[in-house]
Design a protein around this nucleic acid. Structure first.
Length: 399
DNA sequence: TCTGGGGTCCTAGGACCC
DNA sequence: TCTGGGGTCCTAGGACCC
């Protein structure tokens, strides 16, 4: 068996091709070879979550408004997102990866880094390893994946993108700059629309061109963090991708209305439902928080957020709701029309972390118990609707 | 053309304390 | 009386990613 010991570390980035669309085509063979678009229903507000390669030929891409996708390709198959199904397939595929290495870092439903360092005696060269993984996934699920290999996560991720679909691209030791210079600046991970605009203003249009700027200039122009990122990215220096454990966690739920709203009753009812969702998820994940956030987006698409941190933990949906209302009142004059409303918990902590409860202990303990009881019933499949929710729903419109 | 939903990280300013 | 500098926490907004 050949070995390629020239690799000091062997990182693979594995990415499922057009994942949601491919799963749907796999499940429903009559859609194979067709333009399939997963997302909001045509005619409704929403965007494309994912689409098949056949649909991409029409210029359709994810995050595009569905209304435009419909115009570009009226004959496409439009399907709703079936997240649960994709989750199941995702788990299956991650288990396949696990047969090749225990060192897996899953970064989204359809992507993972596999550290294959030191596995050459087991699986052969990086090419051979990549081909084996691709074959295993294809055989066991019928889905195709793209793999990028390099000595760093950053380059491996760019390489898998470069080879899409059904790709296997290897960035060889010593060829990092050669690989980067084949890419368009916009294809660099972490370089979004705004930064691209600023780079264009500075007459920087290529990865090579970006390398002409020294680190200090970039830090002065873009700030410490972004400047340092740009300097390293265009040189293929590891940027420490996904290496730091996420420190602040949050849970939020939001809704975009089909038509803009300025009816307080509607906003409050939706906020109540969202508050219950958020609290339910927090309990399910055994997290607690002292901070609440509210998000609003107005008809003109401008957004605002408001947040408040308390000295005690938030233990009930009612608390989220009532504080959300306060934040709503601080941000909304009652006349402008609202497109989106959302609420959430910030800076989550371990739910088991002991807490100091002083004054309102009794009231909080009571609420906590009620919430936990409701949660328990919900998870047992009982349909629980809070009395207040029910009342709100049947409450007659303002006289 | 008209823009979802769920996240993370960074920045900058203000409050407050030492 | 007016004056520092540093540290931490909170808040709002922005950029980016999947």
């Amino acid at each position: 068996m050949k070995t390629d010991s020239v690799f000091t570390s062997r990182i693979l980035h594995v990415d499922l091709d057009a994942f949601y669309a491919a799963v749907e085509q796999n499940e429903q063979p009559e859609y194979a070879g067709k333009a399939v678009i997963i997302g909001a229903a045509p005619g409704k507000r929403g965007v494309v979550s994912a689409c098949s390669y056949e649909a991409r030929k029409f210029g359709i891409h994810s995050a595009m408004p569905v209304s435009i996708a419909k115009r570009l390709c009226p004959e496409a198959v439009f399907l709703p997102v079936r997240m649960k199904l994709y989750q199941e397939v995702s788990v299956k595929i991650m288990n396949i990866f696990n047969e090749f290495t225990p060192d897996i870092c899953q970064i989204s439903i359809d992507e993972a880094f596999l550290d294959m360092t030191g596995t050459d005696r087991l699986f052969g060269t990086i090419e051979e390893t990549g081909m084996m993984i691709k074959k295993a996934v294809k055989d066991q699920t019928g889905l195709t994946i793209s793999i990028g290999a390099a000595e760093s996560r950053f380059l491996a991720k760019l390489a898998s993108d470069f080879g899409k679909p059904d790709g296997l691209h290897i960035v060889k030791h010593g060829d990092e700059l050669g690989f980067l210079d084949q890419l368009e600046l916009k294809d660099i991970w972490g370089l979004g629309k705004k930064t691209m605009e600023r780079l264009t203003d500075l007459n920087i249009t290529t990865v090579k061109g970006l390398r002409d700027f020294n680190e200090n200039s970039l830090k002065t122009i873009f700030g410490q963090s972004a400047g340092s990122f740009l300097f390293r990215a265009c040189r293929g220096i590891d940027i420490g991708m996904y290496e730091t454990a996420a420190k602040s966690n949050s849970i939020s739920n939001e809704t975009t209305f089909q038509e803009d709203v300025n009816d307080r009753d509607v906003l409050e009812l939706v906020l109540l439902e969202l508050s219950h969702h958020v609290m339910f998820r927090a309990l399910k994940e055994n997290k607690k928080s002292k901070s609440i956030s509210l998000k609003l987006r107005f008809s003109d698409f401008t957004s605002t957020t408001a947040q408040k941190t308390f000295s005690h933990y938030i233990h009930s949906a009612e608390e989220i709701y009532s504080h959300s209302i306060e934040l709503l009142n601080s941000r909304w004059n009652g006349s402008s029309t609202i497109r989106l409303i959302g609420t959430g918990l910030l800076s989550l902590e371990d739910g088991n972390k002991p807490e100091q409860t002083e004054l309102f202990e009794d009231a909080f303990e009571k609420k906590k118990k009620v919430e936990k009881a409701v949660f328990k019933l919900k998870t047992q499949g009982e349909k629980i609707t809070k009395a207040s929710l029910l009342n709100n729903k049947i409450k007659p419109k303002k006289e």
